[in-house]
């Protein structure tokens, strides 16, 4: 079951196509990575999902329903370009944003209390936004995004500008909300975060979808048959001739196998030659490498 179904979405601006016939499904209850370099069309796509702009063609279903006037209340969106009214007090500001998301005065109050307690920021309630540090403001932004308990959370570069402590705080909250059933779209070009957080990804480049799948599957598909070995001693000459070994550092080698060669056979031959092996591991490409390869190639 998909929380979000994106079907043949096209969005053109007068001199370029920002989203070029993109389709994919985002499974319910998962953390989904929407990846792409700067200017790939991520933000354009997100703006269509959040009904900030309309697609030229194509359709988007949220939980099986086409986007309608009630959709915004079911989505929590933290844009990459984000800010707050500097002169407003924290409490008033969060109330305002919560009310805009359709919460009643009463609901907002209760939820605000919960979150302010959770982040231990009750004493900020009457402070003006401009009195807070950038990191503090990010916390407020995060609360504003999740206050109305959206089904779908869209976070565009949520960790940019956050220190590691606050990053972890927000990350833990994202995990917790996800455990409770919130689906999350996580948009970024920081691949190490994606690998850590996301189960499934889509890669967009120049408005087109160029990759989609489970993170593990994607890595598996793009692995290059390279193995890392740590040995005691040297590799015998007859094996050096048959396999492509490169010495990486002291007693550590990388072996790049050709398609018809099998790692099992190579390992057996190595053991047979009397070399003692400390470790043997298939080298998986990082998402970053896959990303760069796909975007450049």
């Amino acid at each position: 079951m998909s929380i979000l179904s994106i079907q043949n979405v096209v969005k053109e601006y007068h001199n370029h196509t920002a989203v070029d016939n993109v389709s994919f499904e985002i499974p319910k209850g998962k953390i989904f990575g929407l990846l792409g370099p700067n200017g790939a069309g991520k933000t354009s796509l997100i703006r269509i999902i959040t009904s900030i702009t309309r697609p030229d063609s194509g359709q988007i279903l949220l939980d099986g329903e086409p986007i309608n006037s009630r959709t915004p209340e079911q989505i929590g969106y933290m844009p990459e370009e984000r800010g707050l009214y500097k002169k407003m007090k924290v409490g008033d500001h969060l109330k305002y944003l919560g009310r805009l998301k359709g919460l009643t005065e009463k609901e907002v109050k209760a939820k605000l209390e919960y979150w302010m307690e959770k982040f231990e920021i009750q004493d900020w309630y009457k402070k003006k936004i401009e009195e807070l540090s950038k990191g503090m403001q990010q916390k407020i932004q995060f609360i504003a995004t999740v206050l109305h308990e959206p089904k779908l959370l869209i976070l565009d570069e949520p960790f940019s500008g956050l220190d590691p402590v606050n990053s972890n705080l927000i990350k833990d909250e994202i995990y917790r909300l996800n455990q409770e059933g919130t689906s999350v779209i996580f948009s970024t070009h920081r691949m190490e975060q994606v690998e850590e957080i996301c189960e499934r990804i889509v890669l967009i480049h120049k408005g087109k979808k160029i990759l989609e799948g489970q993170v593990a599957d994607v890595k598996h598909e793009h692995k290059e048959n390279i193995f890392t070995l740590q040995l005691n001693g040297d590799i015998p000459d007859q094996l050096q001739a048959r396999y492509d070994f490169t010495s990486k550092s002291n007693e550590t080698y990388e072996c790049s196998l050709e398609d018809q060669q099998s790692s099992d056979v190579m390992l057996t031959e190595l053991i047979g030659s009397g070399v003692s092996i400390r470790s043997f591991e298939e080298k998986m490409p990082s998402l970053n490498e896959i990303f760069i390869k796909l975007v450049k190639g």
Binding site: P72, Y77, Y85
Partner: peptide, 14 residues
């Protein structure tokens, strides 16, 4: 300039 506008218009129409 504040960049709040995108947050607001994800809740209300421009």
């Amino acid at each position: 300039i504040n960049r709040i506008v995108e947050i607001i218009i994800s809740s209300v129409k421009p």
